[in-house]
Design a protein around this nucleic acid. Structure first.
Length: 281
DNA sequence: CACTTGACCTGTCCGC
DNA sequence: TGCGGACAGGTCAAGT
């Protein structure tokens, strides 16, 4: 489900509601989604209070006042939905729902639901200082909206990935954090580059444009609250609007917004890939 | 090392 | 209406 703009929206939403709430109980019907030692959970999660909620790439991190943190990855279909007693009659769907697998209860009567249709996601409890030792976080590339992700860095990375399709390279979290299938297609469209082009074939001007357009499309989607294909909702269950504005993603057969040619769909790097043959070379 | 493919799960959608 | 197959926003392990 979620790429950077969606995870950003969820983390920001949670950060509005969770700080200072105290964990009262946790239940889970699918242990692999919450692979934590019950003793650790009792000692460091239950009774603890939330300090803050943040994001790195597509991971969500909830820091606790016990020096422990919850690290969360939603993968394809994960959702995190917060429901307070006052909100309960206003939420779009009944919670817990059909796909709710983990429930956190807080002492004030509110709840945080982890839903995941495909059960790929997970939540790990660990000491805060170990979070950044997690392999995937340690190796993660720069945040695309920060200055560290710039033309020079990007060109340098691409040098080592001459043969791979450019789309495969920007999907790689070690190269740049947070880009997924939707924003890969969108940023390549805005840059006029076919997703199947080898990374090594990009001219300096194209590298520069792609770097800028990754930033642009992610920032714009954050403004619109992210993309909702089917599963994505924010921390209080609302959908995002980016896909109403999308250039190519999910628009197979519809006219290109720039030239009216039909948007085509193929497979690149094993993923469904949308592009305009006329606007992208 | 660079790159590709399959696996993880389950639901939905499309074509016959 | 029913059924099989393809596909789905992410990542990792194992393969070439």
């Amino acid at each position: 489900m979620p790429e950077l703009p969606e995870v950003q929206t969820i983390a920001a939403g949670l950060n509005k509601y969770l700080p200072n709430l105290q964990f009262a109980a946790v239940s889970c019907d699918t242990p692999k989604l919450f692979p934590n030692d019950p003793d650790l959970v009792n000692m460091h999660l239950l009774g603890s209070q939330v300090r803050q909620v943040s994001r790195r790439g597509k991971a969500i991190i909830i820091d606790l006042n016990t020096g422990y943190s919850l690290v969360i990855h939603l993968k394809m279909t994960g959702q995190l939905i917060f429901v307070s007693p006052e909100m309960r009659d206003k939420i779009p769907e009944q919670m817990p729902g059909r796909f709710t697998h983990i429930i956190f209860a807080f002492t004030d009567g509110s709840h945080l639901y982890f839903n995941d249709q495909r059960k790929f996601g997970w939540i790990k409890l660990m000491p805060a200082e170990e979070v950044w030792e997690l392999k995937f976080l340690k190796e993660m590339g720069p945040e695309p909206l920060m200055e560290a992700f710039n033309e020079k860095y990007f060109a340098e990375k691409l040098k080592r990935r001459q043969m791979a399709p450019i789309k495969a390279v920007i999907l790689e979290q070690k190269v740049v954090a947070g880009v997924g299938n939707i924003y890969a297609d969108e940023s390549l469209f805005l840059s006029g580059i076919l997703p199947s082009r080898s990374a090594g074939s990009l001219k300096p001007k194209e590298v520069k444009a792609l770097c800028a357009n990754i930033k642009k499309v992610l920032a714009y989607s954050i403004e619109l609250g992210g993309s909702s294909r089917k599963d994505y909702v924010n921390a209080i269950g609302q959908k995002g609007d980016y896909l109403d504005e999308a250039y190519v993603y999910g628009r197979t057969g519809q006219p290109c917004r720039h030239c009216d040619s039909p948007i085509e769909k193929t497979k690149v790097a094993g993923r469904g890939t949308h592009f305009c043959r006329h606007c992208q070379k």
